[in-house]
Design a protein around this nucleic acid. Structure first.
Lengths: 253, 253
DNA sequence: TGCGCGACTTGATCCGGATCAATGCGGGCG
DNA sequence: CGCCCGCATTGATCCGGATCAAGTCGCGCA
């Protein structure tokens, strides 16, 4: 499915990894980092956060991090790689709910049902930090910053869910999708103009409620209009300004 | 505070009201009720919950409870009436995000941005319980049940956001919408087969990403198929089983 | 009482994107 | 090496729902 870390043919950009490799500190780009900072790196609370986190992985492309119906015990921060979440209805039709990049968190939508309501599937080789949720809750009770951080992550995800709402044209959706990805890479410190699409055209289409052929056509047209350069899954945004005009109805502000 | 719902008697059909009128206890059907019960009705903590809640209203149809950009200070539980939330993009196009019935909570998606990302508009005469969020957070830190309840409400809303995802036919969407409303009324103790649609066809259509004409046509067809009886905004589900078959792809399980 | 307006219904036509189909491409594997 | 399979691109056709257009109903208000 996806080319292995084998550095071969193309001079790929370095694979984004959100791990500074320093065990005594917490990933600087992780979604939890601000909670950690607020708690204070030097305080004993941070040590507790360290205690309840567990590094898991690698998962290979196509492997499940969790499956629909699994009992909810933990949330996961993506340390490296990319994940899609999806629901499969009883007719077997897949519905992609979202893509998650290094530093982002999956599993929050399982708190209420207490079971995962969707699958999480690795799109390439992926590593995670696993946070026991009971321990996390307990910690949140004692450290307001941690509680606040959980509230904010949940609330934030509520906001992004409504991003793909609305009846918008294929052009708008694709442009907004590319800019959304770009922005999320940029905020984690990666390039916001050149990156690798870990997901297939089919996954993008499914996520955007389009047909794979439509996504392919729109990308081709964007390329012929010099808005992007794309070869396979390697993408470069040539004219983000114009893309933003196209996708503005779907983008924040 | 505690302004009693002024006896401005409505000549309307029995409007669902989530307020038992007992000042010393909390609305039995409210979304917060389980948190209160967990805290224990007799314990002093409940008194604190009582303190931080403020009854507001009435709001007349069309009035705003909050507007896009308002600073976030509180969340609101619907005590009576119905609310829609909506975003308006810069072209002035409206996007309905959801409808909220008595006992449900609005404003959770404003925690992260710290400003309301959408408008909340009363669809009929509506009353609310207003919960100061800073006070609520503080209380959550001391009462695990309250914290857990907030987590669950947030997580639950994440789940419902994905209800209208997916590319589904107009029939599926409308059937699922009616059953969703029915289920939400039923869980609050109201009739799950006969109820009033507080929102216009246009609002329903906007929410479901359809045209108003399409919604009208589907409802007419459902009626001719004896699946529902509908007159104006008064609705009765005649064949929920069949509706469930139609809307199954969009419904939980 | 009659007017005017907004909500709703129903019919006719149009179009964006889905679907069907053919081809190219690369990679894994026997 | 050659086969096969899944992903991607591109072209041709089709269809569900949007849009345009009329007409009805109900209600607030002068």
């Amino acid at each position: 499915m996806q080319s292995k870390p084998m550095a071969g043919r193309l001079p790929e950009p370095p694979s984004p990894i959100a791990d500074d490799g320093d065990e005594t500190r917490f990933c600087g780009t992780c979604a939890f980092s601000s909670a950690c900072i607020a708690a204070g790196y030097d305080k004993p609370e941070l040590a507790e956060l360290q205690c309840l986190v567990e590094h898991v992985g690698p998962f290979r492309a196509g492997e499940h991090i969790f499956r629909t119906g699994d009992p909810f015990r933990a949330i996961f921060a993506v340390r490296a790689g990319t994940v899609k979440t999806r629901m499969v209805d009883k007719d077997g039709r897949e519905q992609v709910l979202g893509f998650y990049l290094p530093g982002e968190v999956i599993g929050l939508n399982a708190i209420y049902p207490e079971h995962f309501p969707c699958d999480a599937v690795a799109l390439d080789t992926a590593y995670f930090c696993r946070f026991s949720f009971p321990a996390m809750s307990a910690l949140a009770s004692r450290i307001p910053a941690v509680q606040q951080h959980l509230f904010r992550m949940l609330s934030k995800e509520l906001g992004t869910a409504s991003l793909l709402a609305g009846d918008h044209s294929a052009d708008e959706r694709v442009a907004a999708f590319l800019l959304d990805l770009a922005g999320r890479y940029a905020v984690r410190g990666f390039s916001g103009t050149r990156f690798h699409l870990s997901m297939s055209r089919g996954d993008i289409a499914n996520y955007l409620r389009l047909a794979a052929e439509t996504v392919s056509r729109v990308l081709s047209r964007f390329r012929s209009q010099k808005l992007i350069e794309i070869e396979g899954r390697e993408l470069e945004l040539l004219n983000p300004k114009k893309l933003r005009e196209i996708g503005q109805a779907l983008l924040p502000e």
